[in-house]
């Protein structure tokens, strides 16, 4: 009885708070203001990112510059997710290897993929990598950015892992790249801290709008994010595909 009462009380409080909060929001009103006279943070971003930062893509300016610290947290969340996946799914105890191998071999899906797919994958793989790199290098000019480019690169690796059974990623290089990219991100932040007095502070030099090298440190940070996301997602795919054959 008491439990139910507490639950009702909680729900009532929650509902009341939500109702009060939402009733105070004027729906349909112009809350942005004008660009000359910004009233909210959105107008401030829209005004500042092309004019002061010289970044054509406002979303990138917000993600990497105005809330860059949060992006650093997101990248580390991704890293933690990959680590957690590996630690949960990694099987240490040896099972009956014979049995499992037999089961695999008798399965029709375990045949190698056709030579058409293999040749096509070989041709497409470098092009997919190129597209991914293009996307994260142009993150401050066009839609897309580090996360998207990294995901595209990971799909390229997925294509190779699916079509070639013997395709192995070099784990050492992957881990090194990932660590270096993370270190680079933090290093850019520390540079801002030392030089300008605040973590991830952008440089004073920003270049011209719509140039490839513009926006100060934003392209650099997005390149680091792209490399980190690509290596992490590739590692995740590798772990997921090798789960059955992995033994100590």
């Amino acid at each position: 009885m008491l439990k139910k009462l507490i639950v009702f009380l909680l729900i009532g409080t929650l509902g009341y708070t939500l109702a009060v909060t939402f009733s105070s929001i004027p729906i349909g009103a112009n809350r942005i203001g004008s660009l000359d006279n910004p009233e909210t943070v959105a107008a401030y971003y829209l005004d500042k990112s092309p004019n002061d930062l010289k970044v054509a893509n406002t979303i990138t300016a917000v993600v990497v510059n105005f809330r860059g610290f949060d992006t650093l947290g997101e990248v580390s969340v991704l890293f933690l997710a990959a680590t957690g996946l590996a630690s949960i799914l990694y099987r240490k105890e040896e099972e009956e290897e014979e049995e499992e191998n037999k089961r695999h071999i008798s399965h029709r899906l375990n045949l190698p993929s056709s030579s058409l797919v293999q040749t096509g994958a070989k041709i497409l793989f470098p092009l997919i990598l190129l597209l991914g790199i293009y996307v994260f290098i142009h993150g401050h000019l066009t839609p897309g950015g580090g996360f998207q480019g990294g995901a595209i690169i990971a799909t390229g690796f997925l294509l190779m892992l699916v079509s070639y059974k013997g395709f192995k990623n070099n784990h050492k290089i992957m881990v090194w790249l990932e660590s270096l990219a993370g270190l680079g991100f933090v290093g850019v932040g520390l540079y801002g801290l030392i030089r300008y007095g605040s973590f991830l502070q952008n440089t004073g030099w920003t270049g011209n709008l719509n140039d490839l090298v513009s926006g100060g440190l934003i392209p650099l940070i997005y390149i680091f994010v792209g490399i980190k996301v690509a290596t992490e997602l590739t590692n995740v795919l590798d772990i997921l595909l090798n789960i059955k054959s992995r033994r100590k």
């Binding site: 899906l109 993929s113 056709s114 058409l116 797919v117 096509g120 041709i123 497409l124």
Partner: peptide, 13 residues
């Protein structure tokens, strides 16, 4: 290039 290839892989699988 990619469309016939993917459908080939799907059909085969």
């Amino acid at each position: 290039f990619a469309n016939p290839l993917s459908s080939h892989a799907l059909a085969r699988a």
